[in-house]
Design a protein around this nucleic acid. Structure first.
Lengths: 140, 140
DNA sequence: GGTATACTATTGCGTACGCAAGCAAATGTA
DNA sequence: TACATTTGCTTGCGTACGCAATAGTATACC
């Protein structure tokens, strides 16, 4: 049988390695960081909460609570949609963008360093491709 | 930057897909299952709790609570080590072995089915190899 | 032997998350 | 227009987990 659960083990080991630095230096959890990054790359630096949930593989309630923290810190604010009053956008603030910029440089480097100890550049590409296939299609 | 977090997204999506079946049909969580499997493959069908924790990428307290449930269900029992009274072995019971056998067939098939929808056989092998590298070295 | 250090395991506490229930707004159907 | 269904979001509750503190045991060094 394929050791599929190695996926989890590998991830959680890596996450526990990366997470403390991100939290201590910038006050962000890994999911905080990912959420800010998604918002920064989104059109108008905003996303519907439901889309953010899907992108983060979180449930709707998970996103509500994640954004709760980010809103308290002033990194994200709530915005309404003029055409659909059900939706509440998560809107990246300037402060949020700044915090993301501050964190991203070191964080991206940490990930690379960690993985490059274990895999060659070619293997990294290969892994990213395969994971993309699984993660991408899985979401659908 | 490598989308390292895809690893988590891919896993958690898959886990949420596999987990309910395992739970409803056999009363096991994914970690329950993995723990039983590790014990079944171990010498004497027993492991020190600390080794089990490492193998599952769990903390010591996580294993304590995981085994708590399995012990209540009679799938695992506690055994002492004659040479070191600190250690408490987790010992697979016959009932635990039976439960694992019952679950493993369907569970392994589920994983294969799910992944084979998304990847070719060759890609599966490649992925397993890469994950092995990351997961294996990561633990050290 | 006696003390310092390291190891194994458990418990209390806090956090992150999913699920189910609920509400409000939009959409489809009569 | 009236009602049912769907969609977006939040809240209450339960679960799984890590960390820090603790206790008991083993090992190392004097």
């Amino acid at each position: 049988m394929l050791a599929w659960t190695r996926l989890l083990r590998a991830y959680s080991a890596t996450a526990r390695c990366l997470s403390p630095a991100l939290l201590e230096e910038h006050g962000l959890t890994l999911n905080d960081y990912e959420a800010l990054k998604l918002l920064a790359d989104a059109e108008g630096r905003r996303m519907r909460r439901v889309d953010l949930a899907a992108a983060l593989s979180l449930s709707a309630s998970g996103v509500t609570r994640l954004l709760e923290g980010l809103e308290e810190d002033g990194l994200v604010e709530r915005a309404t949609c003029p055409h659909d009053r059900r939706v509440a956008y998560a809107q990246l603030t300037d402060e949020g963008a700044a915090r993301l910029r501050a964190a991203s440089c070191g964080h991206a480097a940490s990930i690379r360093d960690l993985l490059e100890e274990l895999l060659t550049e070619a293997e990294l590409e290969e892994l990213a491709g395969l994971l993309g296939k699984v993660a991408g299609d899985e979401a659908v």
